[in-house]
Structures are given as C-alpha cells and as structure tokens.
Amino acid sequence: MSQLAVDREIDRSKMKVSDEVAIEIIGMNKWFGSFHVLRDINLTVNRGERIVIAGPSGSGKSTLIRCINALEEHQEGKIIVEGTELSSDLKNIDKIRSEVGMVFQHFNLFPHLTVLENCTLAPIWVRKTPRKEAEERAMHFLEKVKIPEQANKYPGQLSGGQQQRVAIARSLCMMPKIMLFDEPTSALDPEMIKEVLDTMIELAEEGMTMLCVTHEMGFARQVANRVIFMDAGQIVEQNEPEEFFNNPQSDRTKLFLSQILGH
C-alpha cells in the first residue's frame, strides 16, 4: 500500500480547524434488529476538520457516517448537525440532508440523467435554484473535478473514477457545509483511485469539513487532522495521523495497522 496519496506538496494554509462545532454526537447507540452495531459513540467535529475513520469491515464505520445524514436511524443518544438535532421530524432531516453532502462507494449516480442533469436535479427541485444558475454552478463544479467535457454524457458512458468525481460534483452543487465519504475509492481500479483522491484533497485544501471512511492510509497521513479507529461498533482510538500511525496505543490498533501497512 502506498504511503502517500499524491506526490505533490499539499497546501495546508486553508486547512484550518475552527472552534465552531459542525457535528456533535452524544451517547449514540444503534441496533440492527438485536445486533448492537454502534455502542456509545461520542464525537465532536469542528468546522474545517478532515477526519478519516478506519477500521476492519463490520466495525460500524459506514453506519456511523450514514447516521449523520439519517440514512440510518439511531435509537439512543443525540446527533446535532450544524445546530439542528436529528429527530424523526422530517423537516429536520430534510434540512440536514441538504447541508450534508454524501459520496457513496458505488457512486449511485442517476443513470437515466446526463452528468449535468445529475448535478442540477437537487439544486433545482430542493433548493429551487433557477435552472440557468443551477447549470452554471454545475459546470463550475464539473470543471473543478476536471470533467466539464463530459457534462452531456450519461453516467454509464464514463469510467469509474470519472463517475465518482461526478458524484462529488453532484454533492458540491448543493453547497454543503459538510461532506461525508463512504469508502469513495473502494470500488475503483488502482489507476483511478488517484484522480478521486486528488479531488478530495483539493476539497480539503479549500477548508471543507470532511468525514471519510477509507482504507487509503496515505490520504489519512497527508490530509486528515484526526484519524478515528473503530472496532466492534466502538471508537477504539483517535489521534493526529502522525501519532496514530507512528505510536498507536491500543493492541487492536497495532494489529490493524500491522495488517494493512505490513506489506
């Protein structure tokens, strides 16, 4: 596994963590049926933080970030996103979802719409943005992820890496304050991982608050300001990347790191 995500200097000037709280999770528990999948999660994320969540499969990392935009329902505890508490009130859920962007492992682009239409759908129908403005904004973000020339193609005609970059642009078009990444590079060919990570790094350089579930430890080293290690539905260890990788404290973390970095 590569130790670095990109071979260039990363501009950390704008990667500033503010004192304002973006997400606050207090005493959160979740069950799938009788299976206790998330256990007593406490986590505060400040604006501008880039957090990488690592851990073995089945440890609940994806479920954790899917709780933040209510794709999964939690049963106990509080989740407060940008000052709005997640409850069963649909209005709160819609409000939070329009402020939190999400990128999925399998892209989940809408195959019946062109790339441009994928990017303008939510701004037009949720934010009531005029079509022309929504299209201009979509083109702006497509340029940012470096595929403006694909705007009128359908997702099925693009490569995996291109599709994932469209998915990132689609989320950005909603002007989210927080971005969630659920294993964004796990379904990609090795050659395409880099182009997606590049896009994510640029986003970090602009000061976006990001939570990434990923196995890209190079990305964690270079971009994250905090790495969270989860196992069996619990947060086992969290630290700055330098410390996390060089000086892991718990045995479980040491074992995990030796497994994924050991070859």
């Binding site: 935009n69 329009s98 999400m102 989940n108 682009l109 809408f110 129908w125 949720v126």
Partner: peptide, 24 residues
C-alpha cells in the same frame, strides 16, 4: 443506492419517486 442517493440529496419522497425512482 438510488433511493439513498436521492435521500442524501434532500429530495422528499414524492420528488424522489417522480424524478429518480419511477423513470428508472
């Protein structure tokens, strides 16, 4: 994933059905 993507973008049930789910 199609339902999840529509949800995550903030589309409500009827809009998700009309714009994303039903056409497909």
């Amino acid at each position: 994933g199609q339902y999840e993507a529509a949800d995550a973008l903030g589309l409500d049930y009827w809009k998700a059905q009309r714009l994303v789910i039903m056409p497909q």
